[in-house]
């Protein structure tokens, strides 16, 4: 009888300890659960939830978007600092893929592969995907990069310590360290323009309307119309980043 009593009390003790431990663990770990604390699409239809669309079938590879971005946001002119850029994809008949982006496409593209060897060739403009479960935001150790309530990933220049964690965390390669400020810099979706009712600089200059900026929360908006009319995909969907940059005509070879 005595042993049974001890067994029962031990069982009870383990039960209680496990419950208390579980509660403590969830309580302590919750603040680190970035998915739980990621911003969500506002349910109020009057609130903005900015997104972006790119129509690869319309892109002519003129590189004006990459140039305009540098002019608008004072991005250094050196050919390795970009907030947005254009890549030329050439799929050859033998199945190999050639990707080029000389100076981000600002000086124009030249097709170096002979025409008879080309199976398919197209341009892919790249920029920040403004993910709502951003790997870069989760990586920042000081809270210098964040998602605004309207779904734009921004950088707090005065608070960034330039540790480069976010540069590594971004699966799309959309961040760089500004050589003068020594802080990270990235596409802000022209936040200073869109909050004044203007469109972004890259959309403003695109000659073929291959770039669509809009509000995903606006059911009658231009971007929602674009998504309804086309079969759109995001880059690297398996990473579950919550990308809000939608491509029409995205080939499987695009990384």
């Amino acid at each position: 009888m005595a042993t049974k009593g001890i067994e029962e009390s031990r069982r009870n003790f383990i039960r209680k300890a496990a419950a208390a431990g579980g509660l403590l663990a969830t309580g302590l770990l919750n603040p680190f659960n970035a998915i739980l604390y990621a911003v969500e699409k506002p349910t109020d239809p009057t609130k903005h939830w900015w997104g972006f669309g790119i129509d690869i079938e319309k892109c002519i590879g003129c590189g004006r978007c990459a140039n305009a971005c540098k002019e608008e946001n004072n991005v250094p002119r050196e050919p390795f600092y970009f907030r947005n850029w254009v890549e030329q994809y050439t799929i050859k008949n033998d199945g190999s893929v050639k990707v080029e982006s000389p100076n981000g496409g600002i000086d124009g593209f030249v097709q170096t592969v002979p025409k008879e060897d080309i199976f398919k060739a197209f341009f892919v403009p790249k920029m920040c995907n403004h993910c709502y479960k951003s790997p870069c935001v989760q990586a920042c150790p000081v809270g210098a990069t964040y998602e605004t309530p309207d779904g734009v990933v921004l950088v707090d220049e005065t608070y960034c310590i330039g540790c480069r964690y976010c540069v590594q965390a971004c699966p799309y390669g959309c961040r760089y360290i500004h050589p003068e400020k020594n802080t990270v810099d990235k596409c802000t979706l022209c936040y200073h323009r869109i909050s004044k009712g203007k469109t972004t600089a890259c959309v403003e200059v695109c000659p073929t309307q291959a770039r669509i900026f809009g509000d995903l929360n606006d059911k009658n908006g231009e971007l929602v119309k674009f998504l309804k009319e086309h079969t759109c995909l995001v880059l690297k969907p398996h990473l579950n980043t919550g990308s809000k940059l939608y491509y029409n005509g995205l080939n499987g070879e695009v990384r």
């Binding site: 911003v39 608008e72 809270g143 707090d156 802000t188 936040y191 200073h192 004044k196 600089a201 200059v205």
Partner: peptide
Amino acid sequence: SFGELGHYRFNSIAENKEKAMNYAGK
């Protein structure tokens, strides 16, 4: 203003809005 809305400086949103525009629009 740190932590007002999340793990960041809330005033930074306004600072990002204040930047100067270079493109005027069509």
